[in-house]
């Protein structure tokens, strides 16, 4: 691990100032991903600014409904929060499906959004080719072992996947991410927060290097009664999603008023399946409707040597998640 300076931020502004001052500085939340990457030599910040002392750990109701998740609220506390469980049960399910209890106890909500994408070849600097680690060096994963890699929205430069479960549920819940930079606050729509790799896979999010996340603001939801987070994985805990689905329905009897659908384990960002959502609108909540939506969601899928299974797996997981969300016995 490279040497770095360490300081505790005492106010959001001082954290932002420190970032503006030193572009190689990083904010430290739970450290559950950053420290791993520093040990691997993938991240080499010159300074760590500990934001845990900041008063950003609260989960508070927003005026007019909705809920504000403070940046440094722990994943475990968020999943256990009564308002999260009541209004956004899918979010609690997603958080609890992620990582291990120990990691969730440390990991912060903002930090969860800033996890780097998961790829063996990115994490191990012994591989010379990784456009994310070293822009222009190539992608070892495309010709390598790519069972865990992306099937949607990838580019020839990068086929890594976002590893978060929480972010998949958030993608379906449409929060905004409130951030502070040197020029003050701004709000980023969740759909615009994470990026597809394109030609710049080294940049995972649209958060600027000198910005601090203050909170994740969830709007009031009409999906609490009919939602489900489903994670398909190699083992029952402490495994990244092969495919995951956040599915939510707003039902009028058995007719779908509106739907939300997001996928994990399939793309460089939490993947919102908007065309599939639209197709469900006004349809009966039946297996046929769900299957048609699943087809649409995976329409643009492109697979590689070891991950073709993700397409049927994702389709079937979508049908299952929607079925459970609709309230039928799984």
């Amino acid at each position: 691990m490279n040497s770095f300076t360490f300081r505790r931020a005492d106010a959001p502004d001082t954290a932002v100032e420190a970032l503006a001052h030193d572009h190689a500085a990083k904010l430290l939340g739970g450290g559950t991903n950053l420290i791993d990457l520093m040990k691997q030599g993938v991240e080499q910040p010159t300074a760590l600014i500990d934001i845990n002392p900041l008063p950003l750990a609260e989960i508070t109701p927003l005026p007019g409904g909705g809920l504000r998740l403070g940046a440094t609220a722990r994943n475990s506390d968020t999943a256990a929060h009564p308002e999260v469980r009541a209004q956004y049960p899918m979010l609690a399910q997603a958080i609890l499906a992620g990582a291990s209890a120990q990691l969730r106890n440390m990991a912060t909500d903002a930090g969860n959004l800033l996890q780097r994408t998961r790829c063996y070849y990115f994490y191990d600097p012994a591989y010379l080719a990784c456009n994310k680690r070293k822009p222009g060096s190539g992608c070892a994963a495309i010709t390598g072992f790519n069972r865990i890699h992306a099937i949607l929205g990838a580019s020839p430069e990068c086929i890594a996947t976002n590893p978060s479960d929480m972010a998949v549920a958030l993608a379906a819940l449409e929060p905004t991410v409130r951030v502070r930079g040197p020029k003050g606050e701004r709000h980023i729509h969740f759909a615009d927060f994470h990026r597809l790799p394109g030609k710049t896979p080294e940049i995972d999010t649209n958060l600027r290097a000198d910005e601090l996340i203050l909170s994740i603001d969830l709007p009031r939801s009409s999906y609490a009664a009919h939602s489900h987070y489903l994670k398909v994985r190699d083992r029952a805990s402490y495994a990244f999603a092969l495919v995951s689905v956040a599915a939510a329905l707003d039902l009028d009897g058995t007719t779908i008023r509106s739907a939300r659908l997001a996928l994990g384990g399939v793309a460089h960002k939490p993947w919102r399946a908007e065309a599939a959502e639209k197709s469900l609108k006004g349809k009966p909540a039946t297996a046929d409707s769900f299957r048609a939506a699943a087809e649409l969601a995976l329409a643009g899928a492109q697979t590689y040597k070891d991950n073709a299974f993700k397409v049927p797996m994702a389709k079937q997981a979508i049908v299952r998640a929607l079925t459970v969300a609709a309230g039928e016995q799984a």
């Binding site: 291990s100 063996y120 070849y121 994490y123 191990d124 012994a126 591989y127 070892a140 010709t143 390598g144 072992f145 069972r147 865990i148 190699d234 083992r235 029952a236 805990s237 402490y238 495994a239 990244f240």
Partner: peptide, 29 residues
């Protein structure tokens, strides 16, 4: 059901060389 060391087909380097991705059962399994 779970355990396998995957080798990169080009470099022969074990790719899942950590306990997050070299899967063996957890209690819940």
């Amino acid at each position: 059901l779970e355990e396998e060391t995957h080798i990169d087909p080009t470099t022969g380097r074990p790719v899942n060389n950590n306990l997050a991705e070299y899967h063996m059962p957890v209690n819940l399994d």
